[in-house]
Simulated scan of single mutants.
Amino acid sequence: MTEEQGQPAQPEKKEKKSLSLNVVSSKQHKGFGAGTIDLSAVSCVIIDDGVAYIDVGAMHAKSKVERGIKFTPNKEDTPNGRQCWIVWVAVDRNEEGSYYAGATACEMLIDSEARRGWKILADHVNKLDHSIKRRYNLTELGEVERAALRKLLVEHNQEWWDRSPEELKQSLGG
């Protein structure tokens, strides 16, 4: 017994550590799991039929175009699929303010009628990681898709666009 409390000394309980991926947290994490993927500054843009729009559901494969679709890694399983893109856009902040710090595009095919689709999940994960690591990879996008993405980014926040690196602007034709 400890004299101060009048109770037996309790062994210190060790807190069980678990790894979790917190997608919507805005708090900074330090300690166990620090350095894991932080998705709080990543937005999901869908480009479908030449139109780009933000769809946060894409983070969990539940964007408007993905809902109700059974995906396969075999492209030939979706012969009538239309080409759609997910663009992972990371936003960062420097002394001047926020800017588009990373952007990577991932292809997928969607056949809404047959409720089938094609995408390679590993490619989507790797490109999400590249965006988080402040890289740009938009080379697979066609001219129409580049123009749609550029229009969306500029309209979403002109100041962010203005502060973004030339590499992004040149890759989107502006």
Rank of each mutant, 00 (worst) to 15 (best):
K62F: 01
A148N: 14
L141Q: 05
V51R: 11
A52E: 01
A61T: 08
Q28I: 15
V87K: 04
L109H: 04
V65L: 09
P8R: 08
E166Q: 12
L153V: 03
A41L: 09
A148G: 13
K14M: 12
Q7V: 10
D48N: 11
A114R: 10
V87H: 02
H29N: 10
I54F: 05
D49Q: 13
K75Y: 07
G117P: 06
L172F: 04
E15P: 05
L128S: 01
A58W: 03
R135S: 15
W85Q: 10
E145C: 09
R150M: 08
R146E: 13
E95R: 11
L168C: 01
G6A: 03
G97V: 06
R116S: 07
H29Y: 12
S43G: 11
L109A: 02
A148T: 06
L153H: 02
R67K: 11
K16Q: 12
F32H: 10
E155T: 13
N126D: 13
F32W: 11
M59N: 01
K17C: 03
N126F: 12
K151Y: 02
D49C: 07
K13G: 04
E167T: 07
I110L: 02
E166S: 15
A61D: 12
P8W: 10
R115P: 02
E145T: 07
I37G: 00
Y136W: 08
Q7A: 10
A148H: 07
W85H: 14
P79C: 05
V154E: 15
K30H: 06
L21R: 09
E66L: 07
V51E: 10
S98F: 10
D48V: 04
E107M: 06
I47A: 05
Q158P: 06
E95W: 03
G6T: 03
E4A: 14
L168Y: 01
H124T: 00
K127M: 09
K14E: 12
N126M: 15
K30Y: 08
A122W: 05
K151C: 00
G31A: 02
G31H: 02
W161S: 02
P8D: 09
D129T: 10
L109S: 05
S131E: 08
D55H: 00
D77N: 09
K64A: 11
Y100R: 09
W118H: 14
E3W: 09
S112I: 11
E15S: 06
V144T: 12
S171Q: 14
V42R: 02
L152Q: 04
V45D: 00
P11S: 05
Q158T: 08
N80E: 13
L149F: 03
W88C: 01
I37V: 12
K30I: 14
K119A: 06
I132A: 01
T72N: 08
A147D: 08
K127C: 02
Q83N: 06
P73K: 07
K133P: 00
K30A: 13
F32A: 06
K64F: 05
N74E: 09
V56A: 15
M59S: 04
T104N: 03
L21D: 00
G173Q: 08
G81I: 00
R116H: 06
E155S: 13
Y100M: 03
G173Y: 10
K169P: 01
L172W: 01
Q28W: 10
Y53F: 14
S112G: 11
A52S: 00
L19H: 13
F71D: 01
W160K: 13
H156G: 03
G50C: 04
P73Q: 13
K62P: 00
K14P: 09
D49L: 10
